[in-house]
Simulated scan of single mutants.
Amino acid sequence: MTKPIETSKEGLPPLTKLLLEMGPLILFFLANSRPAYFTPWIGPLLPAEMSADHVGIFAATAVFMVATVIALIANYVLERRLPIMPLVSGIVVVSFGAMTLWLNDDLFIKLKPTIVNCLFGAILLGGLLLFNKPLLPIVFGSVFQLDEEGWRKLTFRWGVFFFVLAAINELVWRTQSTDFWVSFKVFGMTPITLAFAIAQTRLIMQHSPEDEAKS
């Protein structure tokens, strides 16, 4: 039996983690649909001149940036560390959000999910192909244990899945309205990701040390 790769079992309570992850996304959706409620707070971040049909997405972008930074700070205060995925995603949110507002072009915030998913997909698959090392436990900060074969399989699946998410994002923002894309980003991508994660349960159970010990 191969030695399991151990990961930290400490972490935030599930509800707190969900709030920190979904909070900025929910505010992103609300600010896009009701920008008037948010512009008094984030007005200085918005472009001096913008067309009426861009007010929502620009307000949403500014709110998303601020909420993401607050979520990262809260995460650090509660855990005394910053998980890799939220940190990298937060950096891209702030960077591409700033370009969106500075250049008065919502293309950059729409590209953010594509860039982040391609980045994580490249890291996971690159680690397997170039260094023969499953990087998923490092990237995810997982709270469970798997043997090496299990981590390799799971890393490969998630690496491919990240590229699929990137392709879906490209398809949606290029073919649908901005409002549809915002709604899909919040209420479409999350269920898709959750469904994929749940679908990996059998693999996780097959390669967990506890199950191997019982067999």
Rank of each mutant, 00 (worst) to 15 (best):
S95P: 07
G126F: 02
R202W: 14
F163Y: 12
M99C: 10
D105W: 01
A166K: 00
T68N: 14
W151C: 00
L165Q: 04
L146Q: 00
L171G: 00
G11T: 10
P44N: 07
A199F: 11
C118H: 10
G90R: 02
I198G: 05
K133Y: 10
G121C: 10
W102K: 11
R202L: 05
V94I: 12
P191T: 01
D105H: 01
L18I: 06
D105P: 08
V93G: 07
D179R: 11
S183A: 15
E21K: 05
P13Q: 07
L154W: 03
I42R: 07
A59W: 07
E21L: 07
P47C: 03
W151F: 02
V55R: 15
A122H: 06
D147G: 08
L125M: 12
M1D: 04
I115Y: 04
L19Q: 01
L20N: 10
G127R: 02
T16P: 03
L82A: 06
I198W: 11
F131R: 15
I123W: 07
L27E: 04
A213Q: 12
M99E: 01
I123G: 07
D105K: 05
G97H: 05
F180Q: 06
E170L: 15
F108P: 04
R80L: 06
Q145F: 08
E148N: 07
